[in-house]
Design a binder for these strands. Structure first.
Lengths: 224, 224
DNA sequence: ATAATGAATATTGTATACATAATACAACAT
DNA sequence: ATGTTGTATTATGTATACAATATTCATTAT
């Protein structure tokens, strides 16, 4: 048999994964707000499945830091205290700098080209004013850098940290006055990678992260 | 009522957590070997519970990186490829250095005292030759540093990374010829924290981590 | 009014049942 | 022997049932 049609036999996804993705999206998008209860029966009927896959999805969200459950009381969408967010931001700062350093050593020419394209996509997205689009373009830009580390575990770790932060970052993106800053910062990051200048890359990423940190923390403070 | 007897109302632990802890321990201790299948029915009967808590515990192990499941085929204890381990070690190196730096800034006098005590406990444990005891003493030493960062999220992240590494590190600890090296390295780390010398702390931790990395990678290579 | 009490109800925890896919293996054909 | 097909068995995926705890809210006592 000239086996060249390899049907994508991975069409199958367990319901727990479907549910997990659905809930995760809902949390990140803000449809499920921090502190909101995740009631199994309610979610089950809403998603048209039984409680079993819901429960398993909740266990997964829990380890992802997106849900918190108290025995016998149930789960709720994780809400951040200021301290918890500062802790996350601290880690994220360190790892993002580290990732940029690695990227300087390892990024390919092809990836550099893509990085510039993503940078421009981001600038274009700002003009639309569509927050969801902007957030996505930003993710895409940074993903190229993450990918350039060649370390998939680091990528998923950084993605996880980003998840915990980004849902509190909408406000920052919304404000047009911040847009020029973001453009400049992305440009600086791009340039330092182009030059493969580790020191400069770390510095430009640090500034980028710190600016966001300030904004995110303000959101949390207002919320508390 | 002079409420000063606060009965530890937290005697209750869901079975999923009991199962999770049990399996986690078994994996780390090596009772469940990398690649070994985790069959629900078998585990359920062995632990005297139903499949439900087993499944939920597996979902938790999965997110912890200790188990891997393939849809419709079941879960097995995660086995490391050399590349995956290198990736983990790379992250762990970066974060451990970062933690040491933070610890230099934040460690309290009390914690410094405890660190020295743990350092001596560790040296004592080496003399017993009891691998489990040594590993524990080592964990205790480093935990003081982690704790000194004042960042619980970072602590749990580091503990998770450690988990993924330590089960491959037994051999290294076993060999008596490595013991003097470990003692020296711990001493160097302790001294740099005592002086709150961030640069030196980073360097001494880096060396410590790198030596372990070499040993761990050898174990993986032999296994493959 | 306020606090305490106790059904009624809602929600989680756990076990079990049933459906479906994966696996092992025997029987058969080549 | 090798390979193939079909069947029995095993294991997972999902739904449901039952048990136990939390919560709610009306009732009662103070």
């Amino acid at each position: 048999m000239t086996d060249d049609f390899k049907p994508n036999m991975n069409a199958y996804l367990p319901l727990r994964d479907v549910v997990f993705n659905t809930l995760r999206e809902a949390i990140l998008r803000g449809d499920l707000q921090p502190g909101e209860r995740l009631m199994e029966l309610q979610l089950a009927s809403k998603l048209g499945v039984s409680r079993t896959p819901i429960r398993e999805a909740i266990r997964m969200l829990e380890q992802e830091g997106l849900a918190v459950t108290m025995p016998r009381k149930g789960a709720e969408v994780a809400k951040m205290t200021l301290k918890a967010m500062e802790d996350v931001l601290e880690i994220r700062g360190a790892l993002d700098e580290f990732a940029s350093q690695l990227a300087c050593e390892r990024i390919t020419e092809e990836q550099l080209v893509r990085l510039e394209a993503r940078k421009q996509d981001f600038e274009a997205s700002l003009k639309t004013g569509d927050v969801k689009l902007i957030a996505e373009a930003d993710v895409n830009f940074h993903d190229v850098i993450y990918e350039a580390t060649g370390n998939p575990k680091l990528v998923s770790l950084l993605n996880n940290l980003r998840e915990q932060i980004y849902r509190y970052r909408v406000e920052y993106i919304k404000k047009a006055e911040n847009h020029p800053i973001l453009i400049k910062e992305h440009e600086a990051i791009y340039q330092s990678l182009l030059k493969r200048d580790e020191k400069e890359a770390r510095l430009s990423i640090r500034e980028h992260v710190e600016n966001q940190a300030t904004a995110v923390k303000e959101v949390i403070v207002r919320q508390e």
